[in-house]
């Protein structure tokens, strides 16, 4: 015990002491995201299918205008642990997208008018990107390329809280003494607080089929869930398998402990 304390004490000292705010806030530093509760949190956390479906709608109708989702394939929309679309629904969603076609029988990629040949999406396709390349994305967005969203929930510190805070963090008064660069928007959760993305969500920007009221907070919550699933599609499988593995290991630990005690029973050590 004494030994454990010796180790734990300095560790605890390091962990407990979180950086305190010094007097005078640094206006170029982002503020920490708001803590929200997410259904996928904790060892038994699972996605809420309704939230994922609504979040998908928000991505499709709002975010996808500028942000790609390159690593998410349509068939995963019907995968277990996902938004819970039926395979037929996923197929219909895929078919709703126009994908750049492979060369046709004559080896052509462009039609007579010089237009790129397209075909409807299939389950094996991933979401098509809104811009043909990074330079085009940059040119269309004032020099800042909108990042791909496939992994964004894992590629930012405290991802889900950060995304939700960022999406709901627009419209706050710019503090006195903060100089907002031309063409940027003030958002205290963004590093440097000046973001190129205009406020993407406005009340009622989408109409939810299930009748949920499309407030900015609701839409950002839903799309955050969807993006978390996009980044970590195997989370439910992981939590489920983890429970089985843990249960097995705990029983095994008990058995190993008993045999350890029994082997050493008559031996002083």
């Amino acid at each position: 015990m004494k030994l454990a304390l010796r180790i734990a004490a300095p560790l605890a000292a390091l962990l407990v002491a979180t950086p305190a705010f010094a007097a005078g806030e640094d206006l170029t530093k982002a503020i920490p995201p708001k803590e929200e509760h997410w259904s996928f949190q904790g060892p038994f956390g699972m996605y809420d299918k309704a939230e994922l479906q609504r979040g998908f709608q928000v991505y499709k109708e709002v975010c996808s205008a500028c942000h790609s989702l390159n690593r998410v394939k349509f068939y995963t929309l019907a995968d277990e642990g996902g938004p819970g679309f039926t395979p037929a629904e996923a197929k219909a969603i895929a078919a709703g997208y126009q994908i750049e076609a492979e060369p046709n029988d004559k080896g052509e990629l462009f039609d007579a008018n010089g237009e790129r040949l397209k075909r409807p999406g299939i389950l094996a396709d991933h979401f098509p990107a809104p811009f043909p390349n990074e330079q085009a994305a940059r040119a269309a967005n004032g020099g800042a390329a909108p990042p791909d969203l496939s992994l964004i929930a894992k590629a930012r510190e405290d991802g889900p809280n950060y995304i939700h805070s960022l999406l709901t963090g627009f419209g706050q008064p710019v503090p006195a003494g903060y100089k907002l660069p031309e063409g940027k928007y003030y958002n205290p959760y963004f590093p440097g607080r000046a973001i190129s993305m205009p406020p993407p969500l406005t009340e009622g920007a989408v109409t939810y089929a299930d009748g949920t009221k499309a407030t900015v907070d609701q839409m950002s919550t839903d799309v955050t869930n969807f993006l978390m699933w996009a980044a970590e599609p195997k989370l439910e499988e992981r939590h489920r398998l983890g429970f089985g593995v843990m249960a097995f290991l705990l029983v095994l630990a008990g058995l190993c402990y008993l045999s350890y005690r029994r082997v050493w029973k008559d031996t002083a050590h």
Binding site: A253, C256, V263
Partner: peptide, 11 residues
């Protein structure tokens, strides 16, 4: 003796 002890702590 030590296979039993090591096994427990390994788990």
């Amino acid at each position: 003796f030590y296979t039993a002890k090591d096994a427990f702590y390994l788990v």
